[in-house]
Each structure stands twice: as structure tokens, then as C-alpha cells.
Simulated scan of single mutants.
Amino acid sequence: MYRRSKKYQPLRAKAAASVAAHERKRLQAVSEDEIEQDLPDLRKRIETTEFDSTEPKATVIELYQSDRIDFYRVVVNKKPPAIAR
């Protein structure tokens, strides 16, 4: 994880409290049926088609949410990619 300065950490806590308060207020104002669902794990789908060979070759790259904000969990053509070692 990234290091946070002593000034930055209280700002993050204040922002998190503000978001939580806003969410509580939103949930109190609506009924169970009207509550919006959280974001899906699938964030992006990239479809490419290669026309270089005799037959077009389609590739689907799906990017899913991960634990970190700067990474995605990747699935290529419905299979997790092999990890190079």
C-alpha cells in the first residue's frame, strides 16, 4: 500500500465519514425496492477483431474489479491468462 502523510490521513477519514453519512441519508430516503445496486465486478469489456489472417479472429478482454484501485483482474476469452514466470 501507499504511505499516507499525517496531514492526508485525517482528510481521508473526514471524506470517508462524509460519504458514509451521504449513503446513510440516501438509504433512509428510499424503500428497499428503490435501492441502487453496487457496481458490478465487471468494469470494462474490450472486444478486438484481427483481420490480418484469412479468418477474422475475435478476442474479448474483460477487466474486473480488484482489491487495488490501480489494477484490474483480467480474463481473456473467458479464461484467466497464464502467468509468466
Rank of each mutant, 00 (worst) to 15 (best):
M1N: 07
Y2L: 07
R3M: 06
R3S: 11
R3D: 10
R3T: 14
R4P: 01
S5T: 15
S5V: 03
K6M: 07
K6E: 07
P10Y: 04
P10R: 04
R12Q: 13
A13C: 03
K14E: 13
A15M: 12
A15W: 08
A15T: 07
A16P: 02
A16Q: 14
A16Y: 06
A16D: 13
A17P: 01
A17N: 14
S18A: 12
S18Y: 01
A20H: 06
A21G: 09
A21P: 01
E23L: 15
E23H: 14
E23S: 15
E23P: 05
E23C: 12
R24F: 07
R26E: 15
L27M: 11
Q28D: 09
Q28K: 11
V30I: 14
E32T: 04
E32K: 04
D33E: 13
D33A: 11
D33N: 09
D33G: 05
E34T: 00
I35R: 15
I35T: 10
Q37E: 14
L39I: 07
L39T: 09
P40N: 05
P40E: 09
D41A: 08
L42H: 04
L42T: 02
R43M: 06
K44E: 12
R45G: 00
R45Q: 02
I46T: 03
E47S: 09
T48N: 06
T48S: 10
E50M: 04
F51H: 09
F51I: 01
F51M: 04
F51V: 02
D52V: 13
D52Q: 09
S53T: 05
T54W: 07
T54Y: 11
T54S: 09
E55F: 09
E55K: 08
E55D: 09
E55S: 07
P56K: 11
P56N: 02
K57R: 15
K57D: 02
A58S: 12
A58C: 05
A58T: 14
I61W: 01
I61C: 04
Q65P: 00
Q65R: 13
S66T: 05
R68K: 11
R68T: 12
I69N: 12
I69Y: 13
I69H: 13
D70E: 11
D70P: 03
D70A: 03
Y72P: 03
Y72G: 01
Y72H: 15
Y72A: 07
V74M: 03
V75Y: 00
V76W: 01
V76P: 00
V76D: 01
N77R: 01
K79D: 03
K79L: 06
P80M: 07
P81M: 06
P81D: 05
A82S: 07
I83K: 14
I83C: 07
A84W: 14
A84Y: 15
A84S: 11
A84T: 11
R85N: 08
